[in-house]
Nucleic acid binder design. Sequence first.
DNA 1: GATACCGGTTACTTCAACGAAACCGGGACG
DNA 2: CGTCCCGGTTTCGTTGAAGTAACCGGTATC
Lengths: 121, 121
Amino acid sequence: MGKAYDVMAATCPSRTVLHRIGARWTVFVVLALGDGPRRFTQLKTRIEGITPKVLTETLRALEADGLVRRTSLPGNPPGVEYALTDLGRSLGGPMRAVSEWAESHVPEILAARARYADAEA
Amino acid sequence: MGKAYDVMAATCPSRTVLHRIGARWTVFVVLALGDGPRRFTQLKTRIEGITPKVLTETLRALEADGLVRRTSLPGNPPGVEYALTDLGRSLGGPMRAVSEWAESHVPEILAARARYADAEA
DNA sequence: GATACCGGTTACTTCAACGAAACCGGGACG
DNA sequence: CGTCCCGGTTTCGTTGAAGTAACCGGTATC
């Protein structure tokens, strides 16, 4: 039997999953939570350039998809902790692979872009 | 020494790379070219739901980044062939990993979404 | 009492991406 | 000659994701 889901199929639910994964800030949040639970402010600091609004939205979306668990800490001072679920942790591998690919191929890509810009001028 | 590029840094060029990788249709094109060169129409057929305009844009962007090579076939009938470059092929692994993750965790995620929708109602 | 930190929320705006539809030249086919 | 396929381009409109900025209650600190 073939696989149950196929991203090439127009109406396959895996497309919605891929869409969530590909959202602008998802990768950063998943990576930032890779070493363990973090507070909202820690995430905001670590992920440079993210605004609180977008961070909230991203965390909510990941929580809705079961990738992140949000826990209120009733201690003093009260706080909120975000952690990856097992499901979220299982996405960490592929995400790390993609971000490491990005980090390690920057020079080639910048060079290609420069070449392309030249060629069309 | 630390790594040269860090996706967590606001101004790091790796962010632009990640942005390109995360673009809606990039993953589909890279995967569709994974088995070898393809014609424009073949890609359009294989990637269900993509419009010619968006396919053109995506291919141009990937070409600019040096991930895809565009070759005019002067034969008869004339045609155009798209193929991954070595760089593009090296991205295939991570991309396949992500898409396979998506395909294989659809049920869990749909269940989580349903649970979340219930919980907030 | 004033100030600051935490973990957000709200309202408004902007902008790039995406999509729909029509159209195009060149060649092949009948 | 009329029609079809290939590989796009062009125009227009939409939308939703993202950004800006201000604000909020509660707690603790000075």
